[in-house]
Design a protein around this nucleic acid. Structure first.
Lengths: 333, 333
DNA sequence: CTCCCTTCTGTAAGCGCTTACAGAACAGGC
DNA sequence: GCCTGTTCTGTAAGCGCTTACAGAAGGGAG
C-alpha cells in the first residue's frame, strides 16, 4: 500500500488518522492509492498499536424487551456515526452472567461500556475499576458508582401513575410486578407505587403479585384478583407486558376495563396504544437513553468532563384503560 | 505474567490456547499464577498474532422488529457459548447503508458475518468476496450467493395463509404490505399470496396497498378498504404490525373481525396471541435462525463443510381473526 | 546566497500476543 | 550408561499498525 503511493507507512497512517499533518498534494496521492487499491485497515493491528479498539460494549438484560432493543439500536446508530462499533451481550437479569459478560467484553478490549441499572456484583465493580474504562449505567436516574447515569426516574414515574389512579377515585389497589431480584428498576417502580398509596392515605395494603415476566402472568394476576381480591378496582403493573396480559384476561372474564377494573402499565410498548382499550402507561425514553449514553462514552474518551447523571423525562400517557371506578365499587371499598 | 510463574510467554500462551501441550504440573502452576494475578489477555494482540478476532458481525434491518431482536439475541447467546463476541449494526432496510456497515465490520476484523436476505449491492458482494470470511444469509430459504442460507420459506408460508382464507370461502381479497424495496422477504410473501389466489382461481385482482412500516399503516389500509373496496372480506398483511393496526381500526369503525373482515398477519409477534381477536399469522422461527446461523459460522471457521441451505418450518397459526365471510358478502362477491 | 526556523516525511521501535523452530528433558531399549 | 526417539519448553520472529524522533525540505530574513 505505502509502496503504491511511493510513501512510507507512517505517512499512510497519518493520512488516515490525522490528514492535516500531511501536505495536501501528498495527501491526495495517498488517498487515490487508498481508493484504487481498496485498502482496508487492519483493525486489530490498529488497536494494538494505538491502544484503542474503537469498539464499545453494551450489556442489557435481554433484547426481547423492546425498550432495550430500541435503546441498543439508538446506541449503535450514534456510536457508528462517531466511528465506533458495538459489541453486545445479554445478562438475562442475572448478575453472575452480567459479570461474565463484562469480563468477556473487557477482554475483547472495548473502549467503553454501557450497563443497565445499578445492581452489580462486587466482582463486577472490581473488574470495571481495574479495566479503567469509562462506562455509563442506564435506565436509572442516579449512579451508585463513579460512572454517570443516563436514564429516568422509575420511582417517580410509577408514583405519578399511581397518583393518577388515586385521583380518579380508586381506593382498592393491586400490584402486579415482574421479578424484582437483580432488577432495581422494577423495585423502584414498585416502591414508587406503594409510596404514593401510603402518601395518599390508602389504608388497605395492596396485594403485590410478583410473577414471571410474561404476558401469561398478567392473566394470572387478573384471575387472582377476581378470586381473592374482588374489591380491587385498580391494577397497577410494573411493565406493559403484564398489563397487556391483564387486559386480555379481563376481556375473557367479561370484566369491563376501566369500568370494572382500571389497568395501568409501564414502558409504553408499541402496542400499548393500539390495544382495546388503549393502555395507560409510562413512556420510557429508550432511544434517547441509547443516544445520550453513546455521547457520554465518546465524550469521556475525548477527555470531556462527565456529568453525574442525565435524567430524562418519562411521561405518564393517559389512555383508555384507566378511569373512575364504578360507584358500587366505591361503596364496597 | 510469564515471569510470575517462572515460564516463558510461549508457555503461558499454550496454557491458554491448547493446554494439552503443556505438562500437567507446569500447566497448573501457570493457571494458578493466571488466577492470582487476575490476568486478562489482550484481545487485539491476540487477534493480530493469530489472525482471528473471535468476533462475529451481524447486520439486521432494525432491532425494533422483534423477530430480528430475538434472532440477534439467540445468535449472541450461541456465539458467546462458543467463545465469540458479536458486533451488531443496522441497515434500516437500506442497501447502501448495509454496504457501509459490512465494510465497517470487515475493517474491525470480524471472523464471520450474518446478513439478512439475499438482496445486496454488487459492491457488498465484492467486499465479502475479497474479505474471504464466511457468512450466512438469514430469514430466507435459499442463498443467491455462495453463502449458506438459514431461514424459512416466506413465499410458501404466505401462500399457505392465503390458502387458508380461500378455504374459508373468501373470494375478495386485499393485500397490505410494507415497502418491498430492498426487502426480498416481503416481496416473497406478497408473491406467495398473489400466486395462491391465482392458483385458486380468484379472478378479481386484489388491491395491493404498499404502506410505510407502522401500525398506523394498518389503520389506513382498513380505511381504504372500507372506502374503495367494500366487497373485500379478507385482508392479508405481510407483517403483524400492519395486521394489528388493521384490527384496531376495524374495531373503531365497528367492523366485526372476522365476521365482516378477516385479517391475517405474518411474524407472530408476542402480542399477536393476546389481541382481541387473536391474530391468525405465521410463526417465524427467529431464535432458531439465530442459533443455527451461529453454528454455521462457528462450524465454517472450524473447517466444516457448509450446508447450502437450512430451511426451518414456519407454521401458520390459526387464531380468531380469520373466519368464514358473511353470507351476504359472499353473494355480493 | 547563507543561515535559521518551521513544516513535513521517513526510520524504526514497539504494542502483546502466537507459533515455527530448535534445543532441553526425559523414557526406554540395548 | 549410552543412544535414539519422543515429549515438552524456550527463543525469537513476526502480525500491521502508530508515533517519537530525527532528518529533509522549504521559506524568509539578512
Amino acid at each position: 500500500m505505502a509502496a503504491a503511493a511511493g510513501v512510507s507507512t507512517a505517512t499512510v497512517s497519518r493520512v488516515l488518522n490525522n490528514p492535516a499533518l500531511v501536505r495536501p498534494a501528498l495527501r491526495e496521492r495517498v488517498q487515490d492509492a487508498l481508493r484504487t487499491l481498496g485498502y482496508v485497515p487492519h483493525g486489530a493491528a490498529r488497536a494494538l498499536a494505538s491502544n484503542r479498539t474503537r469498539v464499545m460494549g453494551a450489556i442489557v438484560p435481554t433484547l426481547g424487551v423492546s425498550i432495550f432493543a430500541n435503546g441498543v439500536e439508538a446506541l449503535q446508530d450514534r456510536l457508528g456515526e462517531a466511528g465506533y462499533g458495538l459489541l453486545i451481550a445479554n445478562s438475562q437479569y442475572d448478575l453472575e452472567k452480567e459479570y461474565q459478560e463484562i469480563r468477556a467484553l473487557i477482554e475483547r478490549g472495548v473502549d467503553g461500556l454501557v450497563l443497565v441499572g445499578n445492581e452489580r456484583l462486587p466482582e463486577s465493580r472490581a473488574l470495571l475499576r481495574r479495566a479503567a474504562i469509562p462506562y455509563v449505567v442506564t435506565y436509572v436516574s442516579e449512579a451508585a458508582e463513579a460512572a454517570p447515569a443516563v436514564g429516568f426516574d422509575n420511582f417517580r414515574s410509577a408514583y405519578e401513575i399511581a397518583a393518577h389512579l388515586v385521583d380518579l377515585g380508586h381506593r382498592r389497589f393491586a400490584l402486579a410486578t415482574s421479578p424484582s431480584g437483580a432488577n432495581d428498576r422494577i423495585r423502584a417502580r414498585r416502591q414508587g407505587i406503594l409510596r404514593c398509596l401510603a402518601d395518599r392515605g390508602i389504608e388497605t395494603e395492596p396485594p403485590v403479585l410478583e410473577l414471571p415476566y410474561a404476558m401469561e402472568s398478567g392473566r394470572d394476576a387478573v384471575r387472582r384478583i377476581v378470586k381473592d381480591f374482588p374489591q380491587v378496582t385498580a391494577l397497577v403493573c410494573t411493565t406493559d407486558f403484564l398489563a397487556i396480559g391483564a387486559l386480555a384476561e379481563a376481556r375473557i372474564l367479561g370484566l369491563a376495563v376501566p369500568r370494572d377494573l382500571s389497568v395501568a402499565g409501564f414502558d409504553d410498548l408499541e402496542f400499548a396504544a393500539s390495544l382495546s382499550p388503549a393502555l395507560t402507561t409510562v413512556q420510557v425514553p429508550a432511544r434517547e437513553i441509547g443516544r445520550i449514553a453513546a455521547d457520554r462514552l465518546v465524550g469521556a474518551l475525548a477527555g470531556e468532563a462527565v456529568e453525574t447523571a442525565t435524567v430524562l423525562p418519562a411521561r405518564v400517557i393517559l389512555r383508555e384503560s384507566t378511569g373512575a371506578p364504578r360507584a358500587s365499587a366505591l361503596l364496597a371499598g
